[in-house]
């Protein structure tokens, strides 16, 4: 078994490290690089506590090998706030009491930011579906949904105030503020009550 030298850019900082092939990205982040904000909650890739952004997409870092992420840009919860200002999703979680024990929260917020980039103005139902990859055992989710709604409003207001559109900045798709959500949200299949 050969070890591999890899490079990870985490929250804007480049790191070089040597890992075994089997080292999971989440362990590289936590144990090797000290980004312990990202938590591990299960090993079946279901709970989403370990969610980070890998090259701008939310992924479960327990289901990515560190070697697979060689050369990638990673954003963790530690990188959400900018210049000491909370990201609107963070403020949303605090204002709406969207967390209790806080263990699922980093992953939940990383998934939520990814959701809001794709769909800046989700309905409550869409938020619930959009967070299906993240489990929370404390809150009953209602205040998490509130938190994401709150963040969406905040980001929308911020964008309007800036004269811009969060979606522009986020993915360059050009769709603005959910006005043609059809671009990013697929029509419902129907019948998939759950």
């Amino acid at each position: 078994m050969t070890e591999h030298d890899i490079t990870l850019t985490v929250n804007g900082t480049d790191h070089e490290l040597t890992v075994e092939p089997r080292t999971l990205l989440v362990h590289a982040l936590r144990d090797e690089l000290g980004y312990t904000g990202t938590n591990v909650g299960c090993e079946s890739s279901l709970c989403g506590a370990c969610t980070v952004h890998l090259d701008d997409d939310a992924v479960k870092s327990c289901t990515v090998l560190a070697v697979q992420a060689d050369g990638a840009t990673i954003e963790t919860v530690e990188g959400l706030a900018e210049d000491g200002e909370f990201h609107p999703v963070q403020s949303g979680f605090q204002e709406e009491h969207g967390l209790q024990c806080g263990y699922c929260t980093p992953g939940m917020m990383m998934a939520a930011t990814d959701l809001l980039e794709e769909n800046p103005d989700p309905s409550r139902e869409e938020i619930r579906e959009g967070l299906e990859g993240n489990l929370c055992r404390c809150t009953g989710y209602q205040n998490i949904v509130n938190a994401v709604e709150n963040a969406a409003d905040e980001m929308h207001a911020g964008a309007v105030a800036d004269g811009g559109c969060p979606a522009d900045a986020a993915d360059g798709s050009g769709s603005c503020c959910g006005s043609d959500a059809g671009d990013v949200r697929w029509p419902e299949d129907g019948g998939e009550s759950e």
């Binding site: 890998l54 992924v59 479960k60 289901t63 990515v64 998934a111 990814d114 299906e132 990859g133 697929w186």
Partner: peptide, 23 residues
């Protein structure tokens, strides 16, 4: 893909969850 393979994309939408679909 969405235009030419509507059933396939409809199914892909339901695979796993957001993070799984990203990966």
């Amino acid at each position: 893909a969405r235009e030419h393979a509507p059933a396939l994309t409809a199914a892909i939408e339901r695979v796993g969850d957001r993070q799984v679909r990203n990966r």
